[in-house]
Design a protein around this nucleic acid. Structure first.
Lengths: 353, 353
DNA sequence: CTGAAAGCGCTAACAC
DNA sequence: GTGTTAGCGCTTTCAG
């Protein structure tokens, strides 16, 4: 009468392995944890015995006895948006490479209570560290957490032993995108921002603004979308009516594609009449009409870097945390951007002909 | 000297709660597990005490004592492709709704050894059930698993107590897409298939073939892509050279967008000269030029249905498994499809004028 | 280098 | 309705 039977036979335990290998249970534990001070001979005997029995370490027992779960929890957004999804993939790989298991909780809205609840549920499941993938709202009141927290992107209000932050400065990327347009000769650049509750959206807005201010350009009213192509389309219709508009920087590619669609439908050519830059370099960006100029985020590098920091905070609680390394920035110029039309009021001078 | 301290203070245990509430430790356990036979008064006292202490159940101890992990593992593909990502989100939600935690392992290639390894690692972490999200290769030799396995899409070779399968018949969706083109009057339909290692790709290919055969149409040579817009573009260039081509069904939207791009560059209009249908209805599908006709998969319904089955298999090992319910099929007609040009050799007759 | 004893914090079975 | 008694299968001391 063994209630823990999963399959037909009882699961072998480490004592069974020990018995078969003719050693103590503790020695089995040593071998399986790659601890030193085990003779090669004994090690091999144990390994063989384990293999023969189809033995598998019981994770719950390990965790209970050691107090370490060897797993990392991530709070993610329940969205198939390219950015968050790509980041999550990078995080999974990095976590696995570091020898940890991954536990995921998605939040629907990503607002403060949602995130707090998700963190709570991860803590209950047992995790050694937590990653907040796309932080949205600032936490109003700090959540108390007893493991290190990595916030990918935004600083967040967690009262944890260690709070870490990495991420590219997407602000820098936004600046680069805007400058590209300015360099082409546009007098100014309109911005279609993402939902301002997202840190990523605010960050890009700031980058755009900084680029404009650095060159002392007029700052047009900001339009707001929700990351969707549909919202980009709606904004594009507004933009199409305004003849002043010669350049648009959208906070992601989906919205940029929506903007272009609206512009084309209104009879404004892209890039001849209006240039459009996106953000993310989604896989289809090179194949829409016209191929989209955009900037690319190094999701994988960000994830790798972030998890490295988190794991260090978990395993060496005392050590100093090195500052996050800067990530490369990549502008991908395609055909949706060009110099402004001649009749523009821009301070550009006709270049030839 | 308590090694399990995570924060500054020792984590409270259920005995601490019991002491504070003036009951036995077992009663605390009862309350926290929502077991019956606890008076409302005692229940409230326990809850208050737990709250006051900031008590949190220790999952490892629960698991060890009960033999149930209350978590489900998913083997997923490390890709940000819209389909797999959307499915994963649905799975996460369904798993959470069922009161289980989620453990994820991505595979890079999704081939047999990869999947076997991923399953092994989930088993070691401890899971009550396993979901194989986008099955690729058939397993050559069955993997022995002692928990129920849900294969989302394809039947797979797991020697598990129960192996379940759900998923829309994407074969049916492919047939609907092909029939749409045929109904418009096209003599036949070319197919740009996905990588044939993917079950999803083989399934769609079959649906396309079935539609053609049902109407006794000529079956053109199949083109192959890798799901990417780039591969669609390459295939599109081939297609553009062949004047016989008036209709193309691509196995996903990204490839369809690549095909359209190549067609347009070659001077073939879409849909006037060639109609193109995609698959998935990715968010930008409605905003590319021309807006893409496509079919939509009910990811959420598939996930919900599948997890429901899996949870039943976990919690009621003896019960019969109801067959998976059929899912609705949705064809989204936009502007990338139209009747074939007049000069076509198709058996269609001019309709008017 | 190896082993024996003592829990980790909870649930399960059974008593009261 | 509630409490008591045993473990769950490991890791952690601490001896040899």
């Amino acid at each position: 009468m063994t209630p823990l039977v999963k399959g037909s036979a009882r699961m072998p335990r480490s004592v069974d392995v020990a018995r078969l290998a003719g050693v103590s249970q503790k020695t089995v534990s040593r071998v399986l944890n790659n601890e030193p001070y085990v003779s090669a001979d004994v090690r091999q005997r144990v390994l063989d015995a384990a293999d023969q029995l189809g033995y598998r370490l019981n994770n719950a027992a390990r965790t209970l006895a050691s107090g370490r779960t060897r797993s990392i929890g991530v709070v993610s957004l329940g969205t198939a948006l390219f950015g968050p999804a790509s980041l999550l993939i990078g995080v999974e790989r990095a976590v696995r490479d570091a020898g940890y298991a991954l536990r995921i909780v998605n939040t629907l809205e990503g607002d403060a209570p949602d995130i707090a609840g998700a963190v709570e549920s991860l803590l209950e499941q047992g995790v050694d560290g937590i990653v907040i993938s796309e932080p949205i709202d600032e936490q109003t009141e700090p959540v108390r957490v007893d493991v290190p927290v990595l916030s990918l992107g935004a600083p967040s209000a967690f009262a944890a032993p260690r709070v870490l932050t990495t991420g590219v400065s997407t602000e820098l990327l936004a600046r680069v995108a805007t400058e590209h347009l300015l360099d082409l000769g546009h007098a100014s650049v309109h911005h279609l921002a993402g939902p301002q509750r997202w840190y990523a959206a605010r960050d890009r807005l700031e980058g755009w603004r900084a680029a404009l201010q650095a060159r002392d350009r007029h700052e047009p009213a900001v339009l707001h979308g929700d990351w969707s192509a549909a919202s980009g389309y709606a904004a594009g219709r507004e933009l199409a009516g305004d003849r002043e508009v010669t350049a648009v920087f959208a906070a992601n590619d989906d919205m940029a594609i929506g903007v272009i669609r609206a512009l084309l439908e209104a009879g404004r050519r892209v890039p001849e009449d209006v240039s459009v830059v996106g953000f993310d370099d989604i896989p289809v960006a090179a194949y829409v009409t016209p191929p989209l100029t955009t900037v690319r985020q190094p999701f994988d590098a960000v994830a790798t870097e972030g998890i490295k920091l988190l794991v260090r905070a978990i395993e060496q609680p005392q050590a100093d945390l090195p500052p996050a390394a800067g990530q490369p920035v990549e502008l991908v110029v395609r055909s949706s951007t060009a110099p402004p039309p001649r009749t523009t009021r821009g301070r550009r001078r006709a270049t030839s002909d």
